[in-house]
């Protein structure tokens, strides 16, 4: 079993100067959600040069396409990523990663998610952009999957608690 190591994945993404925002379950964890996850959801900037950098980062992680059964090894580079319409599920040497090109919800793409994201320091020198809790909740409500129904009460209670502690 591969250890889930989102720190190393983010370290490599940062090292390759990839512009991205972390969303989904791990982002929710950083904000205080108690629901564990074993994949790193990332929305990358779709600019051509950024997808080239993302391709290099994924190659360093030995990323393969996650499907039912054995993962599929293929060349994942900028042009390949540019052709991805919505999501790409990956297996890497540091755990699973999901590239979300068009998240469900009101926010269209990377620019809008990034505008509302906050920066978080996971380790000294390892700073990442984390999606806003309101945006994660909105996206999960729109996605409307069974796993979203399970996590939404926790995220809504987390939002209430953060507001309560802030005296709102």
């Amino acid at each position: 079993m591969t250890e889930f190591d989102p720190f190393e994945m983010c370290r490599i993404l940062n090292d390759e100067n990839v512009d991205y925002v972390v969303l989904g379950g791990f982002a929710a964890n950083l904000l205080g959600s108690p629901i564990t996850t074993r994949d790193l959801d990332v929305i990358p900037d779709r600019a051509e040069d950024n997808l080239d950098r993302l391709g290099r980062a994924l190659t360093r992680m030995n990323a393969k396409i996650r499907i039912a059964g054995e993962p599929v090894a293929t060349k994942i580079d900028g042009p390949f990523l540019a052709n991805m319409p919505n999501t790409l599920n990956l297996v890497t040497d540091h755990g699973d990663m999901v590239l979300v090109f068009s998240p469900a919800g009101q926010l269209a793409g990377y620019e809008q998610w990034n505008q509302r994201a906050e920066f978080a320091e996971l380790e000294p020198g390892l700073v990442i952009a984390v999606a806003a809790l309101d945006d994660i909740i909105d996206s999960k409500q729109a996605a409307n999957r069974a796993k979203d129904h399970l996590s939404l009460p926790y995220l809504e209670s987390l939002r209430d608690e953060i507001r309560r502690q802030a005296g709102e």
Binding site: F4, P6, F26, N29, L30, T36, A120, L122
Partner: peptide, 13 residues
Amino acid sequence: VAERAHEMVRVAN
């Protein structure tokens, strides 16, 4: 945030 991140990853693994 860093403590939360490490704790949740530890529990998930």
